[in-house]
Structures are given as C-alpha cells and as structure tokens.
Design a protein around this nucleic acid. Structure first.
Lengths: 270, 270
DNA sequence: AATCATAAACGATCACAAACGATCATTTCT
DNA sequence: AGAAATGATCGTTTGTGATCGTTTATGATT
C-alpha cells in the first residue's frame, strides 16, 4: 500500500474513532510499525491529526463531535479489538464489485475501516456506516428510507421500501444481540421488523458475534440458525456452542485478535 | 495508444481509485514506466491530478473530501452570507412541531444552522443536512431511500419510495438552478425526477433563490411559477422579476444580508 | 503511598528494495 | 531525413522494515 493511500486510511480511522492505535493501523494497512509511526509523525506536522502515545487521534475533540463519525454512545470500548478482528474476517469475504448488505451495529460498524480500499455496493441501514463510507471510500452507498433513530443511529421505516425490495445482495452481514439453539435473538421488536425485511434480500447470511453473545439471549427470535451461513466469532467460543452451529450446517470462522488472524474450523460455504 | 488517449485513461483511473500506481497504469495502457511517469508529470503541471510517490491521485482525495461538516465542493463561498440570510427567513416560517421538507442544495443547507433549536419533523434528501440535524439538533429526521450521490450529496432513487409517499408536509423548501417566466429550472434530469416526487408531498412550496438565479435558466423545467407559494430572495431582485412573480400570485420576501433581516413586500400566504 | 518490575511504545540506525530522473538508443510519424 | 515520442539502462534518491537501546506507562509489592 502506498503512502497517500495509507494516509487516507489513517485519517479515516482517527476520524471515526477517538483514538487509533499503531497496532490497529498496522493491521489495517498491512505495513510495519515504523512506517505507521512515520506516517503519523508526518500527518502530525501537517496538522491533519494529533499524535498521542500509542497512536493518533483526531484534532476535533469529542465536544464538537458531530454524531456522525463518532457513532454509538459509550460502552463498547473493551471488546473493540475483538470486534475489529471479527470485522476484518467479514470484509475479507468480500471482493471488489460485490453487493453486500451491512446491518447496523457496533460490530458491523468496524467493517468500515477494512472497507476503505474496496469498491463494493453497500446497502446499509446504519447512518454512521453510510457516512463513513461516503467520506472515506469509493464504495457506492445505498440506504433505505425512513426515520433516523438517534439511539441506534439506524434508519427505520414501518413501510415497505421499494429501494430495499430492489436491492439484492450476495451476502448480508449482521451482528446480534444473542445467539442460541432457537436462533438469532434481538431485543427490540422494531429492529426485528427491519432486519427481517433485509434478510429476504440476500443469499448468504453472515453473523458477526463474539463468543459472549452465545450466553446472551433475548426473548425475540429474529431467525432460525438454519438461515445462517456463517458465524464469525472469537476463540473463546465454547465447544457446545460450536457443535450446536455445526449440527445446523453453519460454518464457523474464528477471528484471532492478532496472532493468527484467521482459522478455518468447519467446512466453508464457498 | 496515443498520448491524449493515455491521459484519458490515467485521469479516469485516478478518479475511480483513491490512487493509481505507475505499475497499474503501465498494464492499463500497455506502455513503459518512463512514459507513464512523463504523462503523470505533464498532467501534474497541468493541475489535472496530483503526483505522489508510486503513482498519482485525484486532486480531491476522499480523505479531505466533502462529506459531513464540509459539504459541497468549493465554490459557493462568496454568497454565503446572503444564503444564510435567506435561509434564516425560511426557518422563521417554521414553528416547533411543523413537518417540513428540505430539498438538498447549497442554499437550503444553510437552514440547518437556524434549525438547531427547533424541534421539527424534517424530511430531506440531503445527506449533509440529515447528518447535521442529527448531530446538532433535536429535530426528527427522515430520509428517503436510495443511492447517495457523492457529487451532490443527495439521496436518489429511481423507485417510488413508500416512505416518501407517506410523508406529507405543510411546507417544502428548495433552492433552484434558475427561475424565470416558465417556472423553476434545474440542470440535471435526475434531480428533476426526485424533486417532482417531493413536490407532491407538500402544500406550500417555498423557493430560496438569491437574485442571481433570475438570470440563470436551465433547459429543464421543474414546475410552473403558479406552484410556488413564496420566493425568498435578496434586495437585488429586479423590478421586472418581482412583478413577474407577483402577477402569478407568488409571495416575495426579501432577506437582508445583515441590517434588517427581513422585509415584507407582498401579501403573505400565512 | 512509594518503589520496583515488566511490558509496551518510542526513536535511531542500518540494510534493502522500490521508485525516480537523466541519458541515450530506438521507433514512429511527417 | 528530421523531429517527436517512446523504451531501456543506470546511477541516485527515497521509502520501508528490522533491530537495537532508551523512555514511558502500568500494576504489583512492600
């Protein structure tokens, strides 16, 4: 990856997140620490970002923070590395030109960083995802119509959207509130409704769920396990959960935080 | 392949991708590195692209690019005070709780700054407007579905959206490319199509057009003057243009740049 | 609470590879 | 034939990655 391209990636990363670590940027750009440090130093003297120990941050403090680009409230800082690794595996499934659906969520949001150099057709109901891809990538971006809910930063509509009906993708990526023998579970009925509409518009369903999601189950079932083609999770998944998925024919991929990035553990759906 | 043809290819490549490497261009044009370097150097001094180590990139890299908070390209800086004054008059027409439609554009974008303390229901096809209102106000925001065009930062769809059809507003605000005896004119057929859909969803049509718009006319007619309920413009409007509007029953309001913000010059439609 | 131990982050240096610019030979078009 | 453009070669410059020692943060112990 070339210099100007790296700078784009780095700036995109810091603008979307309070701080981007050197390690994250190394994985994102597939270069060495030294190069990233040099890039950060250069961008720092250019006044395009602020250099901090461990990485870099955007110039604009969170005070001015315009919602977009600084999405999702507070929590979700601990598992961020995990989520990003999972998201990377998800994006690695995509090639330029693919049509994909990205359902809004904190885990799927991490996909945007890995998508900056792609040129996919992305349909998303997440306003932050759309915004970031618009500003920091060449991907084509399509959104459904509806009211934007600040709480989740998601576009929801009680009506059938013709845009949605006309968009068909090979893969749909989504997070989940919980996952269990009965299927994917979600907390909010409104979300269920919106997500089920999207489910009909894609062939393969890829679920991004860290291992903790296997212990959280909400009351509302979004879809059965059989509908899922692949689950991307982390190495802490319990054997019983893994077995449960395999019995239903769900492929599993393990995202490693850093060491070995990816590992196949069940027949691929290729 | 000839020189001018290569230049076309190179320019297309850098605009399509974030950055085009020399190697890529060599394969693309089936020439040597030296030639590509010479071409890049020539295009660089012509100001048609930016030369970077390893290749070339477009002048407006997506990094620095538009998007939220820095919407719309470059121009439009001179009339900004005028536009803001016009936008203020427009927002003053709105009360909390009103449902309004804001069609995307540089003039209507200025409305967001005056809307920060309002609590309206805003339907807009402008991504920057939606983004700004989401982040800096309590207004409820509704968008249509469709592809987001980076050029104009507008959401467009060839399909009928049910969201649009179910939203009905008292007022619709829009800018215009030009305005003349035949009506409002617009340059892009795609925009015409989108705007006409919106026209059906509002009672009153309020047009924000500084006086220079009366001299610019495009070939495509968006709607007749009779459809307009009010035009907000500046004090430089010519008498003949004012008369033209009054004869058609269009109310006129003059926005003062700073001194007296607003002035009634024809019977209000209130 | 202060100190120490450990790990992470940093800066500097060096070797290597890629990219570059200049020069010259070759081709192409008039 | 002559001018312009192209391609190849070579020396130079620049960016990159690895390794080193140093600095800084963290958290564990007393």
């Amino acid at each position: 990856m070339h210099e100007s391209e790296r700078h784009r990636v780095i700036l995109a990363a810091v603008q979307a997140r309070p701080v981007a670590t050197v390690q994250e940027l190394v994985e994102l750009t597939d270069t060495s620490e030294a190069t990233i440090r040099r890039d950060i130093a250069a961008l720092h003297v250019q006044g395009r970002l602020r250099r901090v120990r461990g990485g870099a941050e955007a110039l604009t403090p969170p005070t001015q923070g315009n919602l977009v680009g600084r999405p999702f409230s507070v929590n979700e800082t601990i598992n961020i590395g995990l989520k990003r690794a999972i998201a990377k595996v998800a994006v690695d499934l995509c090639a330029d030109g693919d049509s994909i659906i990205i359902n809004g969520g904190t885990t799927t949001y991490q996909m945007v960083f890995h998508l900056v150099n792609r040129r996919c057709q992305v349909f998303t109901n997440s306003f932050p995802i759309a915004s970031h891809l618009l500003g920091h990538s060449k991907n084509s971006v399509i959104v459904p119509g509806g009211t934007i809910y600040r709480e989740q930063n998601i576009i929801l509509s009680p009506f059938e959207s013709d845009v949605t009906k006309h968009f068909y993708a090979r893969r749909m990526f989504m997070g989940a509130q919980g996952i269990g023998p009965h299927g994917l579970t979600e907390a909010d009925p409104l979300l269920i409704q919106a997500e089920q509409k999207l489910l009909n518009q894609a062939d393969e369903l890829v679920v991004l769920a860290d291992s903790s999601k296997f212990r959280q189950r909400s009351s509302l079932i979004l879809c059965k396990l059989e509908r899922i083609h692949m689950v991307i999770t982390d190495r802490n998944i319990r054997d019983e959960d893994r077995q449960m998925l395999e019995e239903r024919g769900v492929a599993i991929r393990i995202a490693g935080p850093s060491d070995n990035a990816e590992e196949e553990v069940s027949p691929s759906v290729a």
